[in-house]
Amino acid sequence: MEEESIRKIRSRSERILLIISHAVLIFMSFTAIVPFLLLISSSLTSEAELVRTGYSFWPKEWSIDAYRYVFVTNWKNIGRSYLITMMNTVIGTTLSLFITSLLGYVLSRRDYNKRAILSFFVFFTMLFNGGLVPTYISYTRIWHIKNTFAAYILPGMLMNAFNVMLMKSYFTMNIHPALIEAAKIDGASEGTIYRKIVMPLSLPILATIGLMIGINFWNDWQNPLYYITKQNMWSLQSLLNRILSSIQTLSQMADKMGGMTANMPSTSARMAIAVIGVLPILVLYPFFQKYFVKGISLGGVKE
């Protein structure tokens, strides 16, 4: 809370720990940022230099050819895929947070009579998976989601047992049953309790899991790979990955295909595409960060 930052560092142990913390975190930030810088600099390097002398932080031959290629050939596609990806992410994350937290909350309630069965029901899905073919057949034959917007959100993305368990764990630890009892005595319905009491207390976990879900939606390229065949419906990451894995596939094919890869986007273009894919998240993330730092607001329960 606010007081912490103003509170003076009193003990020696705190000081030592602070120094260690800064040191470790600076090192980690460094190792996290450096490859990223390499990514950016390689996207601005000329193709010839990349192939001949490799990646470097300060290339001898600067060139924006990669970005020019990406935007000139694909600007229509990129613009559209940005939009599609943003829509998926926003809608998908909202829906996902909603049903995940609902289920996690219900499972955390110790007075819920079906708790054990439901926990097992949820958890079992983490262990056994029908596999790609049955999932595909189920989604396309029964629910007809192929080439629809739902294909981005539904298969495997909307909710998974891992997040539900995390939510459950958090609620179990932090939402004291007495709080709920008090609300019930006051006559609140389950829905009201959930909305007015549980949600405000859970901002850290909602932000945490919401972030991860959001990143997953943003980065997902597997659903479009199987379910979206219309090119004008591709998301940003699927566009990127199509290009990247096409190169791999073609190079695995027989000798005839060798010549084809000469026409594929160069290494620097691939890096440029990657940078374009990551940029929006980087820009937006600091705005959402405050929810992590916020602790539990007023209304806690004294043990």
């Binding site: 190079s251 005839k256 000469a262």
Partner: peptide, 21 residues
């Protein structure tokens, strides 16, 4: 490497390569 012989030659990294054609 995932770069084909054609790419490598094009960018001046190698002198020759074998290929079926």
């Amino acid at each position: 490497t995932t770069d084909s012989g054609e790419t490598l030659l094009k960018n001046g990294a190698i002198f020759s390569f074998f290929t079926n054609a």
